[in-house]
Design a protein around this nucleic acid. Structure first.
Length: 500
RNA sequence: GGCGGCGUAGCUCAGUUGGUGAGAGUGCUCGACUCAUAAUCGAGAGGUCGUCGGUUCGAGUCCGACCGCCGCUACCA
């Protein structure tokens, strides 16, 4: 039994939740649910990032205070996660008091350790990026990211001595080859480091929407620096030492590739500077593209979770994003693909299997479920599937885990065809076959519950089991033969009606 | 320019340290079945494993070159 601390990035309240945010969050949720099944102590954190010039200006444009603006957008993220039945244990907002205290405490330590110094900075500044550029980085005087004019800014800044962490970071990467994955991202991060790190500006004096620098009232921390620290805040840094000791550094960060630099370079360095351990693991995934193009506000091709939930349901939504794209490379979202996957896996396989099994039990066993055979031909398949699915979840490969789980469903459909219990007269032969099939349904409910929590609970109840699927434990319950004889099995409407 | 990655059936992808005839799911065709959500089961068609060359008894799997795509990074403008 271990500790599994999983995080999504905190999402910037300048944006509203779309399927890209949901992709990361649903994955984190499924992993959290899996680890709970595995018997681990789980702490699942998500939240919102609320400081910075962009927020301050967006708020002004809307005639609100920055806090009001953040409150509104943060609530939209929270509502979306509620809709998707995300089981986060905490929801952190960077404007909370607990976060201010932790940021100040942690960065004061970095300051005391001598890794922060004051200097003036002058140069072209892009407001949307909230970053300075060198003249060389500009394209015809425009921001290379946003392709818009930059502003000449000059201010006294505090700088973090990132340059001093070049070698420590390289040493850390070499000592922890599994820390950043997949390999392509690890190489990328290592490349950034080995090409040389410059000190970075971490404060702003030109705005006040941020966490105040404890040793200098005229400054607030640059939004990215306070944001990363949310992970430490929620783990109890500076407020609950016992709790922090329990959860740190057993943290597993999930993130998209655009924020790799911050998470895989700056964050470990900042932790080292504070005398803390870098994260245990950082899993970087790609973008969900739409029709091969990056999803963005400017191209207006964003897709929002609620629209898809209306059509496919919560389970259909979750399943698609977990199963259809392997976690790592860019994936392509298409409505046709989602429909195809829904019908093939959820309607035709999972849902239909539950329907046919419950119907035949109703007809041949008077609706009373018989027991499975200890030596069923499906027993060894089930054991393999449990093993393979577990390994895939551990390896942060939800799509593979579900692929393995679905193998059990396919084999059971073939098993039923081979034994045709619907043609035989009631008796021990039929009972044996149906008992085996019911046992598969029980096991599949456990294994698939991280992805499709509602349908698995419903199926669980249809085959007469009580309690919650989520209360099951892999080691004790995902074992062949535990479905008890004598339960009332109920037919019901299709769990996943086919969609057109 | 440097570093890294990718290119395998229509589609999405698996293919450990090179070794029986190259796989899965999905889609398509045909057949079976009818308990079930026009679901399921079986069979089949479909790939010169980006191209060329090399190492080897033997390469999708190693080496080199090239083509195409992508990521990070640098520089010139």
């Amino acid at each position: 039994m271990g500790h599994f601390f999983v995080t999504t990035p905190i999402f910037y309240v300048n944006d509203v939740p779309h399927i890209g945010h949901a992709y990361t969050t649903v994955t984190a949720d499924a992993l959290a649910r899996w680890h709970r099944l595995a018997g681990d102590e789980v702490f699942f954190l998500t939240g919102t990032d609320e400081y910075g010039l962009k927020i301050q200006r967006a708020a002004e444009d809307n005639g609100r205070t920055p806090q009001e603006h953040a409150d509104i957008t943060s609530a939209r993220f929270r509502e979306t996660w509620d809709l998707l039945q995300i089981t986060n244990d905490d929801y952190i907002r960077t404007t909370e008091e607990r976060h201010r205290l932790t940021v100040q405490k942690l960065l004061q330590r970095v300051y005391d350790n001598g890794f922060i110094y004051s200097d003036t900075y002058e140069g072209p500044y892009c407001v949307p990026c909230e970053a300075y550029y060198t003249e060389a980085e500009l394209n015809d005087g425009l921001c290379p990211i946003h392709d818009r004019p930059v502003e000449e800014m000059k201010e006294a800044n505090y700088f973090f001595k990132l340059s001093e962490f070049e070698q420590p970071l390289i040493d850390w990467y070499e000592a922890n080859p599994e820390a950043v994955g997949p390999d392509v991202r690890r190489n990328e991060a290592l490349g950034i480091i080995t090409q040389g790190l410059r000190d970075i500006s971490i404060t702003r004096s030109s705005l006040d929407w941020g966490v105040p620098v404890p040793w200098d009232d005229d400054h607030v921390f640059y939004v990215w620096y306070d944001a990363l620290i949310n992970y430490a805040t929620a783990a109890g840094f500076g407020s609950d030492d016992d709790r922090f000791a329990e959860w740190w550094p057993h943290v597993h960060h999930l993130l998209a590739k655009d924020i790799l630099r911050f998470h895989c370079v700056y964050w470990p360095a900042m932790l080292m500077a504070a005398g803390l351990e870098p994260p245990k693991a950082l899993s970087v995934h790609g973008y969900l593209q739409v029709g091969g193009a990056k999803m963005s506000k400017t191209t207006a091709n964003q897709i929002f979770p609620a629209e898809l939930v209306d059509e496919f349901g919560v389970d259909g939504f979750r399943y698609h994003f977990l199963r259809d794209n392997s976690f790592g490379p860019d994936g392509d979202f298409s409505h046709e693909g989602m429909l195809e996957r829904f019908n093939a896996d959820l309607a035709n396989n999972f849902g239909n299997l539950v329907s046919r099994v419950t119907t035949v039990v109703d007809k041949k066993c008077d609706g009373i479920g018989p027991a499975p055979r200890p030596d069923s031909p499906l027993a060894s398949v089930a054991a393999e599937v449990v093993r393979d699915s577990a390994a895939a979840w551990e390896a942060i490969s939800p799509s593979r885990a579900l692929e393995h789980t679905w193998r059990l469903l396919r084999e059971t459909n073939a098993f039923l065809e081979a034994n045709v219990p619907w043609k035989a007269d009631p008796g021990p032969e039929v009972d044996a076959v149906l008992g085996d099939a019911l046992e598969v349904v029980r096991l599949a409910c456990i294994l698939a519950s991280p992805a499709i929590p509602n349908a698995t609970q419903a199926a669980w109840e249809r085959i007469g089991l009580s309690g919650q699927v989520t209360d099951q434990r892999i080691a004790d319950d995902a074992v062949w033969g535990l479905y008890p004889a004598g339960l009332t099995v109920a037919k019901g409407d299709p769990l996943f009606p086919r969609l057109k």
